Simulated scan of single mutants.
Amino acid sequence: MIQFLSGISVTCFVTSYLVALVLELTRTWFEIPVRRIVILGFTVVGLVLQLAYLILRAQPDGTTEAGLMATWYDWSLLLSWGLAACYLFFLLRRPETTVGSFLLPPVLALIALAIYVQDSPPFSREEATGIWRNVHAMAMLLGSLAVLLGFLAGVMYLVQSSRLKQKRAGRGRVRLPNLEGLQHLNRRCLYFSTIALACGLFSGVLMNLNRWGSVGWTERGVIFSGILLLWLVAATLFEIFYRPSRRGRKVAYLTFASFVFLVLAFAAVLTSPHGRGLPDEAPSSADTSISLNWKGTR
Rank of each mutant, 00 (worst) to 15 (best):
S9M: 04
T11N: 04
F13Q: 14
T15N: 10
S16Y: 11
Y17N: 13
Y17H: 04
L18T: 11
L18K: 04
V19M: 14
V22M: 11
T26V: 06
V38Q: 12
V44F: 07
V44P: 03
V48Y: 12
L51A: 15
L54K: 13
L54D: 12
I55R: 15
A58T: 09
Q59D: 04
P60R: 15
T63Y: 02
E65V: 05
A66Y: 05
M69F: 05
A70C: 02
W75I: 04
S76A: 15
G82P: 09
C86Q: 11
R93G: 01
T97E: 09
T98N: 14
V99R: 14
P106C: 04
L108C: 06
L108Y: 12
A109I: 02
I111R: 01
I111A: 02
Q118G: 00
Q118A: 10
P122I: 10
F123S: 07
S124W: 04
S124C: 03
R125C: 00
A128T: 05
I131M: 11
W132A: 05
R133S: 01
A139V: 00
G143V: 00
L145H: 08
V147Q: 07
L148N: 06
L148E: 02
L149W: 08
G150N: 02
M156I: 06
M156A: 09
V159Y: 11
Q160S: 12
R163Q: 08
R163S: 03
L164W: 08
L164P: 00
K165H: 05
Q166V: 04
R168V: 05
R168L: 03
V174M: 12
R175A: 11
R175C: 01
E180T: 11
E180I: 08
G181F: 07
L182R: 15
R188D: 11
A196S: 15
L201N: 15
L201V: 04
S203M: 12
G204H: 14
N208P: 00
R211E: 15
W212D: 07
W217P: 06
E219K: 03
I223S: 00
S225H: 11
L228P: 03
V233G: 00
V233M: 00
L237K: 10
Y242L: 04
Y242I: 09
R246I: 06
V251G: 01
T255C: 02
T255D: 10
F256P: 00
F259E: 07
V260P: 08
F261H: 14
F266G: 01
V269I: 14
L270Q: 12
G277D: 01
P279D: 15
S284Q: 07
S289P: 00
K295A: 13
G296M: 07
